[in-house]
């Protein structure tokens, strides 16, 4: 993606710490992500990747440090949550579509009900997004009638319909059969090409390598190293990274 390295980052995390009970899951996370960038977070399971994503859109409150998205201070106790969620969308591993609503309603309901936008306008946008996700004829279907790959693309359209600046993708292909992984990755790529800032947790190393501008490697609640993909995959220096890569590549 094109970005000027000198511009101020859109998202920054400083010294973010988070504990669940006695378990310290994040132990001082620093990140800077610029507008339009595609960032991949990789690392062993349980290393805190999902938690990092969830702290960025305020689903998980942090214990220490600060998180800023644009002009929004996420850890501010007076945080305007709707404003933050308008700006930062999220797509989950398990899709989490609303089963009692049609595909079109799933995509359009939050902008209508939460952002109070005009229905006709939102539905028009929703149909356009479904077409972009290559699901133009599924508008009136229910999620239960779709394949996993199709459901995940609806979930991506649902996130996009809020017109966010940032979308967080949490292992969005991990629950899918192999033949559907590709179609969902293509959809993620399309989102990135549209200029939306993307932060994705993924185990698809090939995808991270070709689609990401930057890679962060996490282990036990810290960022061990981060680099551009060509550097990261060939010249990783830390032994923990090397060990992880030797297992997954």
């Amino acid at each position: 993606m094109s970005f000027s390295p000198t511009s101020a980052p859109l998202i920054s995390l400083r010294g973010v710490r988070k504990s669940f009970g006695h378990l310290e899951v994040l132990r001082g996370i620093d990140m800077d992500i610029r507008k339009g960038e595609v960032v991949a977070i990789i690392g062993p399971s349980g290393s805190g990747k999902s938690t990092i994503l969830r702290t960025i859109n305020g689903l998980t409150p942090i214990n220490e440090g600060s998180i800023r998205v644009g002009d929004i201070e996420v850890s501010d106790p007076k945080l305007d949550k709707v404003k933050l969620r308008h700006r930062v969308g999220m797509v989950f591993q398990q899709y989490n579509l609303f089963p009692h609503r049609t595909v079109l309603q799933n995509v359009a309901m939050a902008p209508i009900q939460v952002l109070k936008e005009r229905r006709e306008q939102v539905e028009e946008r929703a149909r356009r997004l479904l077409a972009e996700m290559r699901l133009p004829d599924k508008a009136d279907a229910y999620p239960g009638e779709l394949s996993g790959g199709q459901q995940q693309r609806v979930a991506i359209a649902r996130a996009l319909c809020m017109e966010p600046e940032v979308i967080l993708f949490d292992e969005v292909t991990a629950a899918l059969d192999p033949e559907m992984v590709k179609e969902v990755l293509a959809a993620v790529r399309k989102v990135a090409e549209g200029g939306v800032t993307c932060i994705l947790v993924t185990h698809e190393m090939g995808f991270a390598r070709e689609a990401a501008d930057h890679i962060y490697f996490t282990d036990r609640g810290v960022i061990v190293e981060h680099a551009a993909p060509q550097v990261f995959f060939t010249e990783a220096s830390d032994p923990r990274t090397k060990e992880f890569l030797s297992k997954v590549l």
Binding site: L59, V82, G89, F92, N96, F98, A110, Q113, V114, A155
Partner: peptide, 23 residues
Amino acid sequence: VPHGQWEAAEALGYSRRATLFRI
């Protein structure tokens, strides 16, 4: 109702009350 429904709604800006009644 699976916890993921609450999370998805929360991520879309729904309050707890709105999630309960609408979703």
